[in-house]
Design a protein around this nucleic acid. Structure first.
Length: 417
RNA sequence: GUGGGUGUAGUCAAGCGGUUAAGACACAGGGUUGUGGCUCCUGCACUCGUGGGUUCGAAUCCCAUCACCCACCCCA
């Protein structure tokens, strides 16, 4: 117990972190090109923010949040998602007073109490972007395009982009009623989970995996047929924008985001290569969220991307992330004088940006070479009494085994070159 | 929350009721005096996730428990 990370959490060990850094750095650079600014918000927020933003009746709020009372009797919740905190901060600091639209990105851990499985953890990591202040479908297309371009820059290009419009609260309610009406006399034949969905979220029934439900659902009305004029026009607009950008998609009426704040655009990038949890990136528009949280009526759109899932996908499709060089120079020394000389040399090298290392376990020369080999040193410098006396050191190229003598004072020059 | 699977050294594992628990990799040391990667030798599980039980005898059978994995649900 003591030596076990809590269920659903994972340590990221040194032999893995470079992959995370690679992906995060690439994301930051991509954001920079899109003029999207990073925002860092606390790991925890007032519980009320998520209850309000994500929605009281969602699974996330109902049974997945890490919520506790702090010593000041405040109800605190560890971020289960990234959008609400950004919105909160945007409103709190009145960033809507800046030029609009405004674009933000974040790289954060998220926490949800769920039963872990492949691609699903209790602490997981998301990178996401948000665009506030425009309801133009150019923004939706930009968000989707960003995700698409970023993913392909990571070598992932066989994902399926599924888009849908879940309308605004008005047309969505009309549609839900139509759907309930359609399913009314089939209710008894629905699977148990779908019986539960009937009242709460009948749209979910549409993509139920049970064969019975799939049959029952045939001929059901489509959300897209119930969109109000405004929402329908927006969806057309979005498709035109995506077409113009050359982004392929399939319209999937089954896409229903599990967070209440979504309106109109909903989309997912899905893979079938990483198990059942194949959504690598999901997002959409949320035109009422900012106002709901107490800000002005400003629309927004964004996505969240799962870092673990992205990494799994890169792994699964053989996208190698090159491991950084471990070590440039190993300094092998013999004797006290040489050790002291080596210590100084190592420090100088490091100051110059050279990755240098020495043995501190008192290994003999053979052991030091072996050690240098294990550390994947590119060069090994050998220093002993002979060298110090003759003012020469030998530098061995560990790849080619070539060895040459260099005057002491020229070591740095030799290495840097 | 509901199902299914697995648990033997750092890793991958053999073993399937009977003397000292295979093997491989990794790791550590060595093969005579200042040079690695190859090769050779040596070392590395009083113990088989944990706790009970059955038995003359259990890593091997039974029960419980814990952990991990996978799927449903949901989503990143």
């Amino acid at each position: 117990m003591l030596t076990n990370a809590p269920k659903g959490t994972k340590d990221i060990l040194p032999n893995q972190v470079y992959k995370w850094q690679h992906v995060e750095n690439a994301f930051r650079e991509a954001c920079d090109r899109y003029v999207i600014k990073e925002m860092r918000t606390p790991v925890f927020e007032h519980t009320e923010l998520f209850a309000r933003g994500v929605g009281d009746t969602t699974d996330i709020v109902e049974k997945q949040m890490y919520t506790f009372e702090d010593y000041g009797k405040r109800s605190i919740t560890l971020k289960p998602e990234g959008t609400s905190p950004i919105v909160r901060s945007f409103v709190e600091h009145k960033l809507y007073a800046d030029v609009q639209p405004s674009k933000y990105f974040y790289i954060i851990p998220c926490f949800r109490y769920e039963k872990p499985q492949s691609g699903r953890l209790r602490e997981f990591h998301q990178m996401g972007i948000e665009i506030f202040g425009t309801d133009n479908m150019m923004a939706d297309a930009e968000v989707i395009g960003f995700a698409s371009d970023f993913l392909s820059s990571m070598g992932i290009d066989d994902l399926e982009l599924r888009i849908n419009s879940i309308g605004c609260p008005e047309c969505r309610e009309t549609y839900r009623n139509a759907l309930r009406e359609f399913l009314k006399d089939k209710y008894d034949d629905l699977c148990d989970t779908c019986k539960g969905r009937y009242e709460r979220n009948p749209m979910r029934i549409l993509d139920c995996k049970s064969p019975e439900c799939q049959v029952l659902v045939q001929g059901a009305p489509h959300m897209l047929d119930y969109l109000c004029e405004d929402c329908a026009a927006a969806f057309d607009d979005l498709k035109k924008n995506l077409d113009a950008m050359g982004i392929e998609y399939i319209v999937d009426p089954g896409i229903v985001r599990g967070l209440d704040y979504y309106t109109k655009t909903a989309f997912e990038f899905v893979s079938n290569k990483i198990g059942a949890q194949g959504t690598v990136c999901g997002g959409g528009r949320y035109d009422n969220l900012i106002e709901l949280i107490g800000g002005p009526p400003i629309p927004g759109v964004g996505f969240g991307m799962g870092i673990e899932r992205l990494l799994m996908l890169m792994e699964a499709t053989g996208k190698e992330i090159p491991a950084p060089d471990n070590l440039d120079v190993f300094i092998a020394v013999m004797g006290e004088r040489a050790k002291l000389f080596g210590l100084k040399l190592m420090r100088d090298m490091r100051k110059q940006g050279v990755k240098a290392e020495m043995d501190s376990l008192g290994r003999n020369i053979k052991g030091q070479f072996k050690y240098a080999d294990r550390l994947e040193a590119k060069y090994t410098v050998v220093i002993g009494d002979n060298e110090l006396d003759q003012n020469m050191v030998s530098i061995k190229n560990m790849g080619t085994s070539e060895q040459k003598q260099v005057p002491l004072q020229d070591i740095m020059k030799e290495i840097v070159e």
